[in-house]
Computed example of a mutant assay.
Amino acid sequence: MTYENILVEKQGKTAIVTINREDKLNALNALTLRELSAALDVISEDTSLRGLIITGKGEKAFVAGADIKEFVGKSVDEAMELSRFGHEMVMNKIHNFKKPIVALLNGFALGGGLELALSCHLRVAVATAKVGLPEVSLGIIPGYGGTQRLTQLVGRGKALEMIMTGDVIDAHEALQWGLVNHVVQSHEELLPKANLILEKIYSRSSSAIAAAIDAVNVGIIDSGKGFEKEIELFGKSFGSDDMLEGVTAFLEKRKPNF
């Protein structure tokens, strides 16, 4: 499948999706969102792929935000549909993806760009990266999950501070608040760090990883239901081939072959 605004490549068991609008600081427009949605569907069905990396082209920006030109002239209903499309076709699809997704923050991750990163399971940032939700400076609020996912990661107080001031923070402060998982010093270290994390995950059970993602996500929405979902998925895992292999390997004192 060919795309205009994104690049998709395979490296072993990993798909790498790059937002390819470097001259626009990789801003998210409608076409880019549609292409991301389509690529996610393809990667989801490809059994040879165990995980996904999302990043931006160049060294300036992961995604510097939404394409503001597309906001002009939109009615209230049209704006709601724009937000709904981003939520349902991209951000929620990433959030609930059954394979691990790592965002590589190679530069600015602002507005919709930070929201894209927040929807991923893990985030690795270069030390020079900057992140923020500056939407209030445009007279709007984050529309692709920023008010919810940022709060889940950093807590209500810090999330409201970032959203209400529109301030941008650097990678090290983002790490301090748990907004990113790891910070590396150079762009050259980003991909190896992500691959190191993913290779460790690939050595574990893919069915268990998918179940863990599901349980964690249900608990975010409703903590009471999260406990029940964990019980359900824990039980179901006992009927999997991976559970049989994992337990057998443990008892035989060898590495499991997942």
Rank of each mutant, 00 (worst) to 15 (best):
residue 169 I to Y: 09
residue 43 I to Y: 03
residue 257 N to T: 13
residue 194 A to Q: 00
residue 120 C to P: 01
residue 150 L to P: 03
residue 150 L to S: 03
residue 145 G to F: 04
residue 100 P to R: 03
residue 258 F to V: 04
residue 4 E to A: 11
residue 67 D to I: 01
residue 138 L to C: 13
residue 233 L to Q: 09
residue 256 P to L: 08
residue 237 S to N: 06
residue 170 D to G: 13
residue 221 I to T: 05
residue 208 A to M: 14
residue 154 V to Q: 05
residue 9 E to A: 05
residue 182 H to F: 07
residue 237 S to W: 08
residue 16 I to R: 11
residue 2 T to Y: 07
residue 246 G to L: 13
residue 68 I to Q: 08
residue 136 V to T: 10
residue 150 L to R: 03
residue 178 G to Q: 13
residue 236 K to A: 15
residue 93 K to A: 14
residue 193 K to M: 14
residue 118 L to Q: 09
residue 107 G to P: 14
residue 26 N to K: 05
residue 186 S to F: 06
residue 213 I to A: 04
residue 167 D to Y: 01
residue 40 L to I: 13
residue 158 K to Q: 05
residue 84 R to G: 11
residue 235 G to D: 01
residue 154 V to Y: 08
residue 99 K to M: 06
residue 254 R to Q: 07
residue 155 G to D: 01
residue 50 R to P: 00
residue 212 A to D: 12
residue 173 E to F: 15
residue 174 A to S: 06
residue 201 I to W: 11
residue 141 I to M: 14
residue 3 Y to N: 11
residue 237 S to L: 10
residue 42 V to H: 07
residue 191 L to E: 11
residue 68 I to M: 10
residue 123 R to H: 04
residue 57 K to M: 04
residue 196 L to I: 00
residue 161 E to F: 15
residue 107 G to H: 15
residue 206 S to I: 12
residue 91 M to I: 12
residue 177 W to Q: 07
residue 245 E to G: 04
residue 140 I to V: 05
residue 186 S to Q: 09
residue 167 D to G: 02
residue 179 L to Y: 12
residue 110 L to I: 07
residue 256 P to T: 10
residue 218 V to D: 01
residue 196 L to V: 00
residue 223 S to M: 08
residue 50 R to C: 01
residue 192 P to L: 09
residue 32 T to I: 06
residue 227 F to Q: 15
residue 188 E to Y: 07
residue 34 R to N: 12
residue 155 G to I: 01
residue 236 K to W: 15
residue 42 V to D: 11
residue 172 H to F: 13
residue 89 M to P: 00
residue 26 N to E: 10
residue 153 L to E: 13
residue 152 Q to M: 02
residue 193 K to Q: 12
residue 40 L to R: 08
residue 183 V to F: 09
residue 97 F to G: 13
residue 125 A to R: 12
residue 79 A to V: 09
residue 242 D to K: 11
residue 105 L to D: 14
residue 234 F to V: 04
residue 122 L to D: 04
residue 106 N to D: 09
residue 29 N to M: 12
residue 160 L to Q: 10
residue 37 S to D: 08
residue 45 E to D: 13
residue 24 K to C: 12
residue 17 V to T: 10
residue 196 L to E: 13
residue 136 V to M: 03
residue 83 S to P: 00
residue 249 A to I: 07
residue 186 S to Y: 07
residue 90 V to G: 08
residue 211 A to C: 07
